[in-house]
Each structure stands twice: as C-alpha cells, then as structure tokens.
Design a binder for these strands. Structure first.
Lengths: 341, 341
DNA sequence: GTTAGCACTCTCAGCCCAGGAGTGCTAAAG
DNA sequence: CTTTAGCACTCCTGGGCTGAGAGTGCTAAC
C-alpha cells in the first residue's frame, strides 16, 4: 500500500497543516504553502484518491480534508521527519537531573511536571514495577511508645514507611529486632519471605511474632501495590487548551477516566505496540474517552525493573517533538536511576 | 439590618430553590412550593424589597431573582438549618479511620478522596504546619555504597526520607553516626539545630562534617517545605458538573489557579474568617477565578500543629451538608491524629 | 396590606438567508 | 495521458428576525 511520491507529500502536507491549524485543510492552502509545484485542482484529485484509500476524511461533503487515524499512522511510521532536541532544549531538561534528588518518588513526580510543561500535553510516568522485587533494606526504628517505624527500600530505590504497633520495648531491643529483620529479610525474594520469616521466628524471635507478622504483611502489600500508586500524572490542564476539548462533558469524561478508571494503565497494558517510542493513535484504542487523543510512550529501566514514561495529547499533537522528548527521557532516566542505586 | 420574618423566609426560600435548580427563581415557584400563605404578587413585592437592600440580584430586568453574595452570607449566618449527619453517613465516613494507616501523608490523601467523593465538591486538606517543629527521630540507614538513607519523623508524624552521599563506611560506623544524630538532633527545635550540630562536630564527629551538613540542610528544607507540599487536593472533576462551569476556559483558569498559582493556599491565608467552620462566599474573595465558588473549611490539630480541611464548591453548594461534614472531620481528624502519636 | 390583572421586558430556540470556503466534474490545454 | 481552469454545487457559519414563554412592576380593586 505504498503511496507514490506525490501522494505521500500531499498526505504529509495535510497532516502537518492540520496539526498546525486544527482546521480541515483545503487544496488551495496546500498548493500555496507547500511547494509541490502543482495547482489546487491536481491536489484535489490526489486528496480524493487519498480519501478513497482511507488516509483522509472529510468532516462533511464540502469542506477540507482531515487525516484519518490511518493517515496519522502512515505519517508517524513513514513520513514524519526525525527531529532531535536543540542544545537549549536539552539544557533545560537537564536541569531536572541536577536538582537534588530527595527520593525516587518525588523525583519521578518532578519528571512528570517537566515533561508536561515542556510539551504542553499531559505527561505521565509509571514507576518501575517491582516484578522481581527484593528489599535492599528492612529496618525498624523506635517511634513513640507502642509504635515503631518500619522502613523498607525496594531494589529500585522506592522508600516505603509504615507505622506498626509493637509491644513496649527498649530502644536496644527494637534495634535487635531490626537487625534480625535485616538479616533475615533484606535481599530476599518475596516468595521466600514467609519461609525466612518462619526461620527467624523459630530460631531467635519467637517472642516477636506479632511484629514479624506485620512486617511480612507490609512487604506483601508493597509488592502488590496497585499500579495506580506507581503512576504519576500531570498537566491534564494542558489538554483543555485544545480545540477538541471545547466541550466540558468530554473533559469531564476524560478526567474521570484517568482519575478513577485507570485509563492510562489500561492503555499501557492493552497493547504493547512495538516501535520506539510506541505511538498509539486515537481510535486505535477503542476507548471512547481517548478517541481524539494519541499517546507516545517509551520505557526506561531501573535495574531489572521497567518503568514507562509518556505523553497524552490531542491526535494532532506534535509527533516529532514528542518522540524526541520521550526518547530523551528513556535514555536519560535509565542512566540516572542506575547511578542512583 | 435584621429582616422581618416574612422577608427572611422569602430569602431563604429563594436561596434554597436556587441552590436546588441553579436557575433564577420566580415569584410563582416560591408561592407554590414554599407554603408562605401569600400570593405571587406579595412575594414579588418582598423580592423587590430584598433586591433594594442588596440580598437578591436579577440577571436581567425581567427574570427571576438570584441570591447576591450578601444574600448567601445572611443565609449561611442566620437562616440555614442546622444539619447533622445521619447514622449511615457517619458510618461510611468512619470507614476511613478503620483502614490501616500506612503513614500520615497517604492517610491525608485518602481523607481528601473521601471528603470530595461524599460531597461531590473539590476537597482539600492542608497538612499540619510544622511551625514549632521538632524531629522526634533522626536516623541514618545504610544503603548502597557511598549512599545512606536519612529518615526523619516530624512531631506531627510526617515521615521524610532522603538519600545522602556518604564516604564509604561500615554498617557499624553508619550506626554510630546515626546514634549521634539521634542524640544530638532529635527533639531539638530547629533554631537550635545548627548549634547542636556544631557541638556534635566538635565533640565527637569532626570526621563527619560532610554528613552533618547534609542532614542539617535537609532538616531545614523540610522545615521550609512550601505549603504546596502539605496541600492535598482532590475531586476537581466534581466541579465540572456544575452549570457555572459550562465554559472550558473558566475551568482551565480555575485548575491552573489551583495547580500552579496556589489558589487554595492563597484563599486560606488571606482571611481567617472566624466562624466554625469558616465559610467564604464568591466575590468576597476578590480573586476572579473563584467568584462563583464558595469555600467551607475548618481546622484540626495534631499536637500543637494546626491543619485545615475544607471544600470548594459552587456558590450554590449545599451549605448545611458541607458544614456538617467539615465539622465532623475537624473533630474526628484531631482525635485520630492525636491517637497516632 | 394583599391580590388580581395586565402591559411590558427580556431571553431563548428556531428559522431563514447571504457569504464563504471548498469540492467534484467537465472540458480544454499541455 | 496528465494537468489545469472554470463553474455549479454543497455545506457550514453567523447575523438578524420572530414568536413563545417566563417573569416582572404597576395599578386598581378587595
């Protein structure tokens, strides 16, 4: 289904013009603004052909053309120009990595902010999964009477804390328990944790079964942490500027879908389109709320764990720029997180 | 400026009818639906008077009346009925406090969610300030080579962690440093921290100045934590259903004002209206973005620190219910947080 | 003081119409 | 055979008009 050269150039022109203006594109504009060296009439013929083959749509019988999903697909797969980032752009993104990293979570949140602000689309990061998680540290710290603070660090650098109830104990005793926990449970795969915990109880900690139970329970709950808690989303407001969201109800549906129904997780899960970064366009994902939206996303790695970073924008988003930015972060985040460990 | 009894009843009827329907209220509806025992004509006369005295407005010469800000004010101050919460409502709110508290921050986030979901308005919680903060715990835990995890707990129960760089040290050594930090810096007022840190350096920790500097720096940064990081907001979507937000631009302005410009902090700071809970209505806060919104908020306490919890809804929100809910949380949160310590 | 009646005002939805943008087709030109 | 000019046609858009409906304010009667 390869298009001849001129058809391809017309399609590309229509897509780019439409992306820029948001309006249906007429033959005159193409003839005038894109130097194809032919008259509007010829363009019209080409556009009619492109419509027949499904690359263009017409909102109504007599107005300009608009790219169909298939048209966008061809555009991003074959027609769109490669675009790198300028020195300035890179410099401004690099600022993020210079700032003091407090902890992984706030760093990822900050990343979302930067991504969404520089693109003016909705940005998201799905934190590294903990598929094969082990805990590099498990500590118990004295808090107030009857309470202790459990601190664990996952192998991808997430710090999780939890207050647990403990019988009254001296600081020294808490420390002993903490040491035991570290000895038995740190760097142990989750599946082996109950086993190790039993060992621990039998050998030296029978008195502390209450504590150990809570610890095991918490380790499990972190492991099972729903994707929602690993997902950071920001810049939804940016979508409101887009003409396809003049309608409040649509905005509401979209925000609800993202906030309550885990739309983004759903989309990420649903298909792992290959392509790097992966791009999914409008109606390709049959969810109604996103039929005017496209998603560009890539993967990054923290150790063996994989995270995702991406953008959600209008179907007529700036694909070359979005791709460049996602690519940048794929590489840069992996680098940064590996240094952190 | 007390109104005579019938005027008060007319005003109340207009407010309640308008809150229910969102439309300008005519004299006929009032006469029919609220049993005042007089004819529409009489109501018309009363409404004309109420308009003269500034309690009602007319969108245009010949349509029904709408409460003015002053009208709402009188309504919430004197006319509106007290309303408690039903057993069912209380039961469903209490669920929140039964769930396992992981840590204070996620608990407060959960609270916001509950508040906004049960009211269908935007809900927010401003976490307890740390005006007179001390750190009840300061610990250092071994992480990977060259890194250690600093864990501190504020006196209101916030746990903050931070990875810092350390020279290569044995676990034992890290523990010694951690103990020192606890001894010198825990339960010390922030203003005295630099002093204590100096003591520590002179007396036993001169080798660790690099670490101590980072700790002091981090303590300060937590102290200075911008209000934005203590503020949890949720349920903005709920506002989109309101007729006053048919217009996307307005929605956008509002979301931007909340997200980037700290609108809520600004409003909370700007006036500490007395009243319990405090209610601020539309144009009373001159910010343009909220001229159709009202805010109902109250205080809760965690030790000596004060937090705030509230709702942002359309000016025609259900005040009796909102007040009841905020009251409930004022009391209940204070209780819960004091138990936690 | 209250009410019925009535003229008046203003909004809103629907309709029509003219203007404009763009198409598809046809026929002529290259 | 491809390209282009010309032209009739379609459809959207915005402005202006109109009639229905809702509500008011005033006046005069109760």
């Amino acid at each position: 289904m390869a298009l001849d050269d001129r058809k391809a150039r017309v399609l590309r022109a229509v897509v780019e013009e439409h992306i820029e203006t948001g309006l249906p594109v007429g033959s005159r504009v193409i003839a005038r603004r894109y130097s194809l060296g032919v008259s509007p009439a010829t363009i019209r013929n080409e556009m009619a052909d492109l419509e027949d083959t499904g690359y263009l749509d017409k909102p109504h019988t007599s107005s300009g053309r608009v790219p169909s999903d298939r048209g966008y697909r061809l555009y991003v797969d074959e027609l769109m120009p490669e675009r790198g980032l300028s020195q300035d752009e890179i410099a401004s993104l690099e600022l993020l990595f210079r700032s003091k990293a407090k902890d992984v979570v706030s760093f990822l949140k900050e990343t979302v902010k930067v991504v969404s602000e520089t693109t003016n689309y909705l940005g998201f990061v799905l934190g590294p999964d903990s598929g094969s998680v082990t805990y590099t540290a498990v500590h118990l710290l004295p808090a107030s009477v009857g309470k202790a603070l459990l601190v664990i660090v996952t192998d991808v650098g997430f710090v999780e804390t939890c207050l647990i109830e403990v019988p009254p104990m001296s600081t020294e005793e808490i420390r002993r328990v903490s040491d035991m926990l570290t000895r038995y449970l740190a760097n142990v795969e989750l599946s082996k944790v109950p086993d190790r915990a039993n060992h621990m109880l039998h050998e030296e900690a029978s008195r502390y079964s209450e504590i150990v139970d809570q610890v095991v329970e918490f380790l499990r709950s972190v492991q099972l942490m729903p994707e929602g808690e690993r997902l950071f989303v920001g810049g939804a407001v940016n979508l409101l500027g887009q003409p396809e969201f003049r309608d409040v109800d649509r905005v509401k549906d979209l925000l609800l879908a993202i906030e309550s129904e885990g739309l983004i997780q759903y989309l990420l899960e649903r298909e792992s389109r290959s392509g790097n970064p992966a791009i999914s366009i409008g109606g390709e994902n049959e969810s109604d709320a996103v039929k005017d939206l496209s998603m560009v996303y890539g993967r990054f790695f923290a150790g063996r764990s994989e995270g995702k970073i991406g953008l959600l924008g209008p179907k007529r988003m700036d694909y070359p720029k979005s791709v460049a930015i996602v690519r940048f972060f794929e590489r840069r985040l992996s680098l940064f997180l590996s240094q952190l460990q």
